[in-house]
C-alpha cells in the first residue's frame, strides 16, 4: 500500500524537489502552499505523514501542527517539521506541540527519506 505524504511549504522550488524525491521513493504526494491549505488538505486527503514548513503565509507551521494534533480524526498522522530557523527553541517548541520529528533546512535528502521511512515504520 502506498503511503500518502502531504508537502506543506510556500517555497515553490523546495516543493518541486520534495515532490520529485518522494515520488521517486514510491510515495504518493499532495501539496499545500500555505498553512490553511495544509490543514484543509490534511483533513481531505488523510495523508500518513506531513512535511510541515514553519514559515508559511496565513498560518504558520506551529499553529497547523497544533490544529492537526487537536483533530481526533487525524490521530495516526505523522508530522515532520522543517524549518530554516534552526534554533533550539524552535525545535523544542515544535516537538512540544506534537511534531514527531524535526529537520532543519537545508537538509540531506537521504536523511530526509530515511526519517520519513522510519516515521512510517517502513
Amino acid at each position: 500500500m502506498t503511503k500518502k505524504i502531504l508537502i506543506a511549504d510556500d517555497e515553490q522550488n523546495i516543493v518541486i524537489s520534495l515532490e520529485f524525491l518522494l515520488s521517486r521513493e514510491g510515495f504518493q504526494t499532495v501539496v499545500a502552499q500555505d498553512g490553511e491549505e495544509a490543514l484543509a488538505r490534511a483533513r481531505a486527503e488523510r495523508p500518513d505523514l506531513v512535511l510541515l514548513d514553519v514559515m508559511m503565509p496565513k498560518m504558520n507551521g506551529f499553529d497547523v501542527c497544533q490544529a492537526l494534533r487537536a483533530d481526533p480524526d487525524l490521530a495516526g498522522l505523522r508530522i515532520l517539521m522543517l524549518t530554516a530557523k534552526g534554533r533550539e527553541t524552535e525545535v523544542s517548541k515544535g516537538l512540544g506541540l506534537g511534531a514527531d520529528a524535526y529537520m532543519t533546512k537545508p537538509f540531506s535528502t537521504r536523511e530526509l527519506v530515511e526519517k520519513v521511512r522510519a516515521l512510517l515504520g517502513m
Binding site: 517555497e11 522550488n13 523546495i14 518541486i16 524537489s17 520534495l18 520529485f20 524525491l21 521517486r24 514559515m55 530554516a84 530557523k85 534552526g86 532543519t104 533546512k105 537545508p106 537538509f107 540531506s108 535528502t109 537521504r110
Partner: peptide
Amino acid sequence: HELRTPLTSIRAFSEI
C-alpha cells in the same frame, strides 16, 4: 532563514 531557503533547494536538487 532567507539564506537557508535557497540553499535548501540547491542542496536538494544537487543531491537528487
